[in-house]
Simulated assay, not measured.
Amino acid sequence: MSDRERERLKRWQRRLALCKRGSARHQRAKAAIAKLHARAADRRQDWVEKTSTDLARRFDIIRVEDLHIIAMVKRPKPKPDPGQSGRLLPNRRRTKAGLNRGILTNGWGELVRRLEHKAPGRVEKINPAYTSQTCSVCGHCAPANRESQAVFRCVACGHRANADLNAAINIAAGRVVSAGREMPVRISPKREPQLTTSV
């Protein structure tokens, strides 16, 4: 949903809150809100279909992170204030709600599901553990490699890159990292290769 549409949604939601239930204005506001949500859902579905079709046509093997999206969008637990015993810090619900909205808006789970339908047997889910701490050049894995949330710098070889890009290279290469050591993903030799066909 664009910023302009989000503003329109807020305006309609305010109007809905002021309307009397069952009135014509109430019904009109509800219909306008439903229309905005439906338009955003249609746009997301269109993107998922086009992207999954493009990836299924162009690649023989598609590797994705095996993310637990339901766990990622859970409400955060309040953290105790270290300065004052017994008091809780304010729940960062608003910040987490924005992150959750971003995750759900991008339709990650739906994209993987459609990829599995359009490219059966060619989608591999890679365990995301330690992929952002492992160097894509030398394979060294250490928490110190993550200089910040965005910057990756290997303490062993000095390789510098964007942290997400480095993790994406590890996933694309099919590297499964466990407790600091790298293990290559094994592809079954019995599986027949499925070549893509251009339409």
Rank of each mutant, 00 (worst) to 15 (best):
P193N: 07
L165Y: 13
I126C: 13
I187D: 10
K96M: 10
R8A: 00
G180T: 05
R87E: 11
K74M: 11
P193H: 08
R186I: 05
S198V: 12
T51V: 12
E65G: 04
E192I: 10
M72G: 13
N127K: 07
V48H: 03
A32I: 08
T134P: 00
G121K: 08
A172M: 05
Y130E: 05
H26P: 06
A17R: 08
A156P: 03
R21E: 14
G180V: 07
L99W: 11
N162P: 01
L88Q: 08
A163I: 01
K74L: 04
R113E: 11
L36A: 00
G102M: 11
L18K: 15
Q133S: 04
P189Y: 06
D164P: 04
E124D: 11
M1Y: 08
R4H: 11
V176E: 12
S178A: 10
G121C: 03
K79D: 04
A41M: 14
V151Y: 06
S85P: 14
G121N: 03
R75A: 05
V199I: 13
A168Q: 02
V176W: 00
C141K: 02
A97L: 02
A97V: 04
N162Q: 11
H26N: 10
E5C: 07
A71I: 09
R122T: 02
A167W: 00
N170C: 01
D46F: 14
R4T: 07
C157P: 01
H159L: 07
G139F: 03
L88A: 09
A38T: 10
V155D: 06
S148L: 06
P82V: 05
A71T: 08
Q27M: 09
R57W: 10
A71H: 14
R92A: 05
T105P: 04
R191S: 12
K96H: 12
A38L: 15
E49N: 14
